[in-house]
Design a protein around this nucleic acid. Structure first.
Length: 199
DNA sequence: TGCCAGGCCCTCTTTAGGGCCTT
């Protein structure tokens, strides 16, 4: 499979439009089913992290106080990702923070995003939950450490992306599918999947 | 403590409502 950048944000909340900002970003570069490179950094959001988010992620105000500012980390991450296509779990969430922060810096943010959650809903409807951790358990993906930390989740999503590619290749009898084909698949109603690959 | 937003998907739908998923 082609090289992609799988990313995961930890943030102060759900909406950059409401003032929420990233506290941590991890990126794994995945190629042919393997993680070939990694980027990770905490960042200082310059606002308090809600208590329930700290309970969820383990990331505290003290941890990010000593971290570089968001803009510095995002610029470095953008260089690391370059022109690679991007993958994330529930990509709509990560994409809005990626675009919002890069636009603040005046940097381009036009990378296409593929979503492992939308793909998993189509490919694994028998899974009761399509949360990242539940999918990793159901599909017996390799263990990745503490959930809800950026690198663990980026690695987990990378393994899920590789598994999805392998399953699409075997289920539909196609060569290892690329990012563009899987983006087309994630936007195709389940009942039309066979037609998608026959095209 | 649990909410915030927003896109997707399913159904008791389609001129809508509610659950899932991300932090």
């Amino acid at each position: 499979m082609e090289r992609v950048a799988v990313l995961d944000f930890e943030t102060t909340g759900l909406s950059p439009q409401q003032g929420d900002r990233p506290t941590e970003l991890a990126v794994t570069l995945v190629e042919d089913g393997r993680i070939v490179d990694r980027f990770q950094s905490l960042m200082n959001p310059q606002r308090r992290i809600p208590a329930f988010v700290t309970r969820l992620t383990g990331i505290t105000d003290a941890m990010v106080a000593a971290a570089p500012p968001v803009g510095e980390v995002m610029a470095e991450a953008a260089r690391f990702v370059g022109t690679l296509p991007v993958v994330a779990h529930n990509a709509a969430f990560d994409r809005k923070f990626w675009v919002h922060e890069l636009q603040r810096l005046g940097l381009p943010a036009s990378s296409p995003f593929a979503c492992t959650m939308l793909l998993a809903r189509r490919l694994y409807p028998e899974c009761g939950s399509h949360r990242l951790g539940a999918l990793a358990q159901a599909l017996q993906l390799p263990p990745c450490g503490r959930a809800h930390r950026a690198m663990a989740d980026a690695e987990m999503a990378g393994h899920l992306w590789s598994r999805i590619g392998a399953d699409v290749a075997s289920r539909f009898g196609v060569a290892p599918p690329g990012h563009a084909l899987l983006r087309r698949l994630q936007a195709t109603p389940r009942a039309q999947l066979q037609r998608c690959f026959a095209a």
